[in-house]
Structure formats: C-alpha cells, structure tokens
Design a protein around this nucleic acid. Structure first.
Lengths: 344, 344
DNA sequence: TTGTAAGCGTTATCAA
DNA sequence: TTGATAACGCTTACAA
C-alpha cells in the first residue's frame, strides 16, 4: 500500500525545500531548469497529485457545487442533474448531491453541513415541506454568508437569488388551449395541493385557458391530490361520475393513472377522451397510447442553473442583480390526444 | 454579508486562546465552567459551525463517499443511489456523485480527482467502455493507495475488492424457467453484446434454463443489440420472421420495445406471446400490459454497498478478506405473462 | 535560485 | 485552568 505522496515527502527525498518543489511543479521561473526537471520527474514517477482538501483550505474555495433536491428517483430531477453535471465538469467543478426526501429538517441539515466549507454554492429545489412551512431561514442564512444559491423548479419568491424556472403557467395554458383547439369542452384537471408552487401555477394556466376561451371553470372537474402514493384510487373515484372529453394532469404519474382509470371505466383514449400530462419522462414515451406532455427540458434547466451559479462564483456578474430565467416548455403531442384532423 | 465565524475570531473577541475555545466547545473538562459558558453562548450567538475542510485536512478523512456511475438518467442507478444515501447519511457520511457517461476517460478522471483527498472511499459501477477495454489500472491504483472500493452491478472480477451484485444468471434462469412452466417452448432472448457483463450473465441464465428443460438452444431466437438507441427497429426486424411464444429481455427498454414490435406485428400480449423483462422500473409498473420483470432491488444493493464500504472505512473488517455479496432477485409477475391457470 | 515563514481552520500535546 | 505550538498539505510573500 503506497500512500499518496505529498510535497513534503518529495522535498525530503530530493533534499530541497517544500516551496521549491511547489514552485518547480508549477513551472515557476524562479526555479532552475535542472531542479525543475528533477522535481517533475520524481513527481511523475510517484504520481504526485495535489491534495484537494489542502487546496480548498488554502484557497477558500472548493470548486464543488452542492445540489439539494427533494428526491432522486425521479426522471425530471435526474435530467436536471445531468445538465448541471455537464456544465459543472466542463468548468472544472464537481458536484455533490444531497437529498432532502421532501423533509424540511433534512434540507436544513444538508444545507448547513455543506455550507461549512464543503461547497462554494448551491443549486436547489426546495422540499415540499419547506414550501408548506414557508420557513426559508436556512436558505437566507447561507446566502447572507456569501454563498451563491440558484433555485430551480420549486422556487421561493421571497428568497432573493437567481432562479431558473419553466413557464409552468404558460405550459399548462398551451396544453389546455391545444385541447380546446381540438374541440374539447369538458376538460378535467388533476393537480396537486396548492402549496406545491408548480401545481398551483399549472392550475392557474388551466383556468386561464378556459377563461380565455369563455369556458366556465367547473370546480367539479378539478381534483387536487395530496397523497401521491394513493393517487390511482383517488383518480378512479373522481372519474366515476364525471362527463368529460379531456384531461390535463400536472404530472406524468397522474396522467398515466388517469388513462388507466378511464380505460377501466370503459373509455377509449384518445377517441373518447384526450389526455395531456406535464413532464416528459420515460413512461410517457413508452406508454400505449404514448402520452402527450408538456416537456420541461430538465437538462437545459440544470445547465442554465449551473452556469448562473458558476458565473456568480467567478464574479462574472453584478453583485446585486439577480435574475429569474424562465425557460420555455414545449408541447409534445403524441397518441393520447385526439387531433381534430384525425376525426375528419 | 456576515462571513462564517472561525475559532480564531471567537478567541479574539473573547480574549482567550484558540485552543481554549476549541476545548470549551467540546466541553472539555480542562476548561472552567465559566469560560465554557461564555464561549458556548458566543458561539451559539454567531452560529459557529466547524469548517469541514479544515477538519478533513486535520483528520485525514473527509466523511464522504464517492459514487461513480455510468449514467444517472436511469431508474436502477437512481434507486441504488437512494440506498447508498440512506445508509451513508445515517452513519454521518456524505455522498458525492460523478458520472462517467460510460466513458473510460471520464471514469479515470473522476476517480483520480476524487481520490486526491475529496473522498474516503468509492462505490462504483464501471463504464461500458471500461469493461470493453479491460483496463482497470485506475481502480487498482486507488485501491493500492489504501482507499476502499466497493463495486456493484457491473463489477470486474479481476479487481480485488468488495462487491455487491445480483444473481443475474439465476434471475434470468428463474424468469425463463417460469416461462417454461407456463408451457412456453419457443422463447426468444433479447440481450446486449457480450462485453457487458450483466448481459452475458443473463444470457447464460437463459441458456441454462433451456438446457435444464431439454429445450435446444436456437441461436436464431437470440438477438444481441449493440446500439441501445436504435433497439426498437432492430427488435422489430428481428421478430418479423420468428415463430415464438415468449420473450425474455435483459432490460426494461428491450422488453417494452419487444411488446411494441409484437403488437405491431399483430400479436397479442400475453395471449399470443408472454414477455418478461429485467429491472423493475417505473415503466414496467405503468405499462399496459404491466410488465413482468426480474426485480433487481437497487435500493438494497446501494444500502449493502454503503455499509460494506463504511465498515472498511471504520476498520470493522479484516484487511484482506474481500467479499462478494450476491443479492437475490425476485420475479414479479404482472400482466405481460400468460399464466397456465389463465388458460384453464 | 533557493529557502523560510505565515496562513487557511482545526485539534492535540505539552507546558505554564 | 489556560495557552503556545505543531501539525494536516499547500501556496506565496519575502528573505537570503
């Protein structure tokens, strides 16, 4: 077992000082060619690599980005991470991921821990519980300590920092508008409870589309689900007595469960009822009928968040001006929607 | 902007020495109650938290685990991470994730970088390219430097370390045996190219099941796919001239594509043809017909890998004895398989 | 051209 | 009971 070699050891072996070794390896011209060659050869032979921890301590920067997300077993977050990783690596940063599991306490712990020297800044999407509690002291705390934070997807208006979101409302609007354009009139909405910011925004988009088209909002056609794990039964019960011609669901799972429930009730998708979901995941693509969705472009989101953060870390941006980047969604129409032309 | 406070600053403010502060905060009984109270109060007021980087340097351990995986947009890996995270956090470790994107070079870079002080040990699943090249010097290198490594899923026999795998071969065997038990006789296999270790093992399980049941292995019924991205077309073409009554696919994607292709060809699943896949992901559950699969228990795998690694890090295990943990798979039978009893 | 010393934030040893 | 000092591995201003 050959432990990693340090400057000190090289210095000792070669009978020079530590600073000489350090300088030689950096090709400083303070050092003679001879010594440089000698040192470099030796370093190479023993595969010397500087210790990151020591460098971090010295430079007071770690070159790592902390990501805190509610869950990882989730296609969308996974694509965001991919986007972050890509940009971060390109710019010489590493990425450390912590999961809040949607728990406020764990989010606080993670943030505090990582803020104590482990990372230079954060990219985060807050836990459901945090949105509910409306307690953001932990985030404001790290910001006030001078660590840049970029929020994405589930962002908090009250926290002042850079943000990357998609136009949830507009994405929902477009989807519902599309349904209306295909002559749908009785459009149900399956959403989450309102404290989940994206759920709320998507609900607003739905409502706005209806209003714009002079369709009255019928609260009977709106289902708000609290407990995602039992959404299937909820949705089934909900549909059992409804007369509808389309469904807009605020996530993939709800959309799939809607199709299943409707199929059970003897409805044909898309012939009897059209369905559009939000979030374009693996399931949407492979489902039969393949699911029409609002694509959130997670990777792009991650990439944008990472470059915003890194720009701040490298002081490429004015101290006080924070920006909220709104990324466009795009509507992907697949087989779960009955198109007007189809019926001709 | 209030920067994080350090021991030194506390010492200065309180006009005591740094070591006194350090000891006071650790409740050392060398220090008088009075000073302790004073120091603690001040520390609390300023929200003092020790700097992890300094601690890492001092203790020569970082309390973080490096995870290197080929990709993250992948349900299985995601569940493994979940399992690792869970155990790691419980034992006070953090987790830093790097993606190799299946590239040998990036795997080497990641490993080298993290090995220079950033982590205490590794949990890794090697890149496809690495398996192909059969070059494992980078892994052996970190091991020889005294950093424990635990490999999972895609492991390398030649590298001596702890490993966690599932019984790929046995899982495949069981799946195929199940098909045979349901009276299937012409069972096709959709696999990957052989250098992907798990693909090879699952293929072996398939073959063994046939042999055990005196069914001749028909190479015509075996498809090995190199380019996952275009698997759909390949599978379609493959099936067009085959007479089969069942399909065993080595992953979820292939299974789904098989069902799609067969459906296109006018076959009914499961009535005409039964399908079983490997890896139980989101798609399997929601697909219609829901997919029968060999469940890999990713979370369990991650948890096991993490505890093996942490045991090594904390010297709870004998230096030289490395173990390979073989986790059992479990067969989940859903609608994509026609059961014998169904036909009675 | 090389070396000394201080410092990044902590802890541990030893002396006062 | 408190404090000075060295050390973890590295960089850099300054001295020799």
């Amino acid at each position: 077992m050959k432990r990693k070699i340090t400057l000190k050891q090289i210095a000792k072996e070669l009978d020079v000082s530590v600073s000489t070794v350090s300088k030689a390896l950096k090709d400083s011209r303070e050092i003679s060619i001879d010594t440089k060659d000698k040192v470099k050869a030796f370093a190479k032979l023993y595969n010397y690599k500087p210790n990151n921890i020591a460098l971090s301590l010295k430079n007071r920067k770690t070159k790592t980005i902390g990501i805190i997300i509610p869950e990882i077993v989730h296609y969308f977050f996974t694509t965001v991470i991919q986007g972050i990783e890509h940009v971060a690596n390109e710019k010489g940063y590493n990425v450390i991921i912590c999961l809040s599991n949607n728990s406020f306490d764990k989010e606080v712990l993670n943030l505090e821990f990582l803020a104590n020297g482990s990372t230079d800044g954060f990219i985060l999407s807050v836990a459901k519980e945090t949105q509910q509690k409306e307690d953001y002291h932990h985030i404001n705390e790290v910001i006030s300590q001078g660590m840049p934070v970029v929020m994405f997807d589930r962002v908090i208006d009250e926290v002042i920092c850079d943000k990357v979101i998609i136009s949830d409302k507009h994405g929902a609007f477009e989807a519902v508008q599309y349904l209306i354009d295909q002559s749908c009139k009785k459009i149900a909405l399956i959403s989450t409870v309102d404290y989940v910011s994206v759920g709320k925004l998507r609900t607003e988009g739905y409502q706005e589309a209806l209003i714009t088209n002079d369709i009255p909002i019928n609260p009977e056609l709106i289902l708000k689900i609290e407990d995602v794990d039992h959404s299937e039964e909820r949705i089934e019960a909900f549909f059992s007595d409804k007369d509808i011609d389309a469904v807009f669901a605020v996530n993939e799972k709800f959309a799939v469960n809607a199709i299943k429930a409707l199929t059970k009730l003897g409805k044909k998708i898309p012939d009897d009822i059209s369905v559009i979901g939000f979030t374009d995941g693996v399931v949407s693509k492979s489902f039969i009928p393949s699911l029409s969705t609002v694509n959130q472009h997670g990777e792009e989101m991650g990439a944008k968040a990472a470059s915003l953060l890194i720009d701040r870390l490298e002081d490429k941006v004015h101290e006080q001006s924070f920006q909220t980047t709104v990324l466009n969604t795009s509507l992907i129409i697949r087989d779960s929607v009955k198109r007007k032309t189809d019926s001709l």
